[in-house]
Every structure is written in structure tokens, then in C-alpha cells.
Nucleic acid binder design. Structure first.
Lengths: 199, 199
DNA sequence: GGACACATGTAACAAGTTACATGATTGG
DNA sequence: CCAATCATGTAACTTGTTACATGTGTCC
């Protein structure tokens, strides 16, 4: 039921389904994501429960928009969820699962390249998070001076950044370790012990 | 389709559905999880595709077991998946979403407690990962001496550990920052500016 | 006129969870 | 005999993805 409550939280400021997806693609990207085709029916259902109201309004550019806003009972439901305590789901990180089975590929060089690709993607994500952080820091200075809501949002961003940095460090460490293995087996090959292509 | 391939990977050593779930609860816990009720039908489907074979055998303790093993074509499919390059899904971290909206609760003290609960859970997970790491390090010494397969599995474990440590550091940092806010508002209340219970 | 961003939706499917049903064996 | 662990499975449901359908307004 998390998506329900996340939409409730986002709709403290009125927004359309389309707006919400943009939020998932930018400021909420490091903790949640939903497709438009999931967002639209959920909004309808939440309106049915009385947690949202909607109105249509003309778009500045494009067809009519349906703009949703949270009701009092919707806000109460959001608070109830927040008071439940932290929700933990299961982690599902497919590329880590892939690494776990990588010895099927035989060649440490390919594993090194694989981790290199992971690094590229993580570095890109880190860059987008840092691009969100910079203007916030410029506007307010030290986080201790932030208003509460901005501090909480800033803190979730910080976690995203710190975890991404940890991942990058891990990639570098792992690549170095794999590179040593590649060099070592090349050395053995040169010494005539093993032919590199025949293995 | 990740679960299909993860089961294929795990079944390089023959195992039952029940065994596989135990693996998800222990050594695979930091990158994937699946319920028994999901595992059983998937195994059946993979057998139908010719990627697994099964036989029944008596259990040492309990009813008959159905033991699966990967076939040549199953192994080829696993390799194909590994060669596709790293798979990235969307992160969904409900407790971070909760923090993002925490200003609805009004009180920084409650947010601090919330992050404290997060810390407790993450610390427990970190402890279980470190408990897996210790005997591996004891057995092999330096990771550079590990055989390839063990190095890859060890590396996934290291990522889990390093990310968990980064999360713990973030919790401590965040709690400190929130604590300062709690103390600050208590100070204001003492100075007669705001009555703490009337807000 | 065509590409692109804006905008809303449905349908079919895949993945994952929760609840239920059944039964063997072991240890207290 | 009761609880716990071992063991396999189905059914109903929820959640999330991919593909499709439709149409507006802007810029080149």
C-alpha cells in the first residue's frame, strides 16, 4: 500500500497524474518510482475512498488536466501510515544477483567490465542527486537552518547520495581486485603456463 | 524474469524449493528474496521449459523432497542473462518515502525516534551480513587468494556490508541533527517563548 | 506536416504476497 | 500430545509492467 500513501504525501500540493510521474522521475527517484499507467488508476481509487478530490482544468500546453488534492481524511490516513513506524521491504538488486553467479562466465576480465558498467550507471545517478542537492544548499546554507520539511526531504536525498558514494567506492575496490586477477592470469600465460585463449 | 535466473544460478547445486528459500533467508538475503509460494510454481515452469530437471527423494526428517537441478540449456540461459549486462530496477524504499513526508507529524522528536528505529533494523541486518563474512575470511584469508566464484560471492556480500555501514552513518548523522532541533525547541520553551505541550 | 512534450486512460500480462490446505517427523 | 521444523502445494489477491489507444498544442 506504499504507493497510495506516497501519492497522498505528494498531493499536499495539488498535482495531476502527469505531474506526479515527473516527481518520481526527479525528486523522488532515489526512493520510489511508478508508471503513469499505475498512477492513474490509483488516483481514481483514492478519490473513491474520499482521500482525494479532483477537478479538471485547462492545460497551458496540451489537453485538459485532472488535478488532485488531498482531503482531511486523506491527510489523516497519511499520518496513520507515518505513525506505523518504518516499513522495510525486501531488497531486490538484480545486478548484484548477476555478480553472485558470474563465475559461470569464466573470465575475470568480463566481470571487471560488468562492474565497470555498474559504476557508470551509479555515477550517473549520483550526479543527478548531487544536481538536486546543490541549489538547496545554495538557498539555505547549513542544513541546521532548514525548516523541518526541507530538512526531512534533504535527509532522504543525503541517504541516496551517501549510499551511491559507497557503491562507487565498492565498484572501484572490486574493479581493482579483478584487474589484479586479469593481470595475474596474463602473467601466467606469458610465462607459458596457460594459453589465455585456450581456457 | 530475474527470479527465474536467480533460481537457475542457485540450482547449479541440486536443491529443493524449501532449500532455496533458506538460501534467500541467509546468503542471498542482501540482494533478493522470494516466498515459497512463488518459488514452487516458478520451479515447475522452469522444468517445463527444459531448464531444470527434478527427482523426488526421501527427506531425512519430514515428507518427500522434490530436488531440482539445472540442465545444459538452463545453464546456457543463465549465461545469456549474465551476458546481457547489469540489470537495474527502480529502488523502492518505503521508510525513506515516509521520512520524506514526516513533517506531517510536526514533532522532530518523533522523527528522531523513527530514524532510531531504522538504525536498529539496519544494524541487525549488518550484523547478520558480518556473521556470514567472518568464517569466509577465516577460511581463505585475503580475498585476493579466493577462487573466482568465492570472490564474486564475497564481493556481493561486501557491497551489502558497505551500504549498510553507510546507512548506519547516515542514521547517526541524521539523529544528531534532529536531536539538536529537539533541544533547541525545548530551550525556546524554557525561555517562555513557546509552551511545549500546547503546540 | 512531423516530431515532441503534454495529457489521460485501458487491457493484458507478469510478479509478488497472504492465506489456506495437507501431512511427516522429531523433541520435549 | 503438542509445538516446531520439514516439506509441497493451491487460490485469491495486490502490485507493477508493457503495450495500446487517443488526442492537444507548440515549435521547426
Amino acid at each position: 500500500m506504499s504507493l497510495d500513501h506516497i501519492l497522498l504525501g505528494m498531493l499536499r500540493r495539488p498535482a495531476s497524474g502527469y505531474d506526479l510521474r515527473r516527481e518520481f522521475e526527479s525528486s523522488a527517484q532515489h526512493f520510489w518510482y511508478a508508471e503513469l499507467s499505475q498512477i492513474y488508476p490509483v488516483l481514481k481509487r483514492l478519490e473513491g475512498k474520499g482521500w482525494l478530490t479532483s477537478r479538471t482544468e485547462p492545460s497551458e500546453r496540451g489537453p485538459e488536466r485532472r488535478v488532485y488534492e488531498v482531503t482531511e481524511s486523506g491527510r489523516a490516513e497519511l499520518v496513520r501510515w507515518l505513525e506505523e513506524g518504518p516499513q522495510f521491504g525486501h531488497q531486490r538488486i538484480a545486478h548484484l544477483a548477476q555478480l553472485f553467479f558470474m563465475d559461470e562466465l569464466g573470465d575475470p576480465g568480463r566481470v571487471r567490465d560488468f562492474v565497470g558498467e555498474v559504476r557508470t550507471v551509479v555515477a550517473k545517478r549520483l550526479a543527478t542527486l548531487e544536481a538536486i542537492e546543490a541549489p538547496i544548499l545554495d538557498a539555505h546554507g547549513n542544513p541546521d537552518g532548514f525548516p523541518d520539511d526541507e530538512l526531512y526531504q534533504f535527509s532522504t536525498l543525503r541517504l541516496g547520495i551517501e549510499v551511491a558514494q559507497a557503491r562507487i567506492r565498492w565498484c572501484d575496490e572490486t574493479i581493482k581486485r579483478l584487474e589484479a586477477r586479469v593481470v595475474r592470469s596474463a602473467g601466467l600465460a606469458e610465462a607459458g603456463t596457460v594459453a589465455p585463449t585456450s581456457v
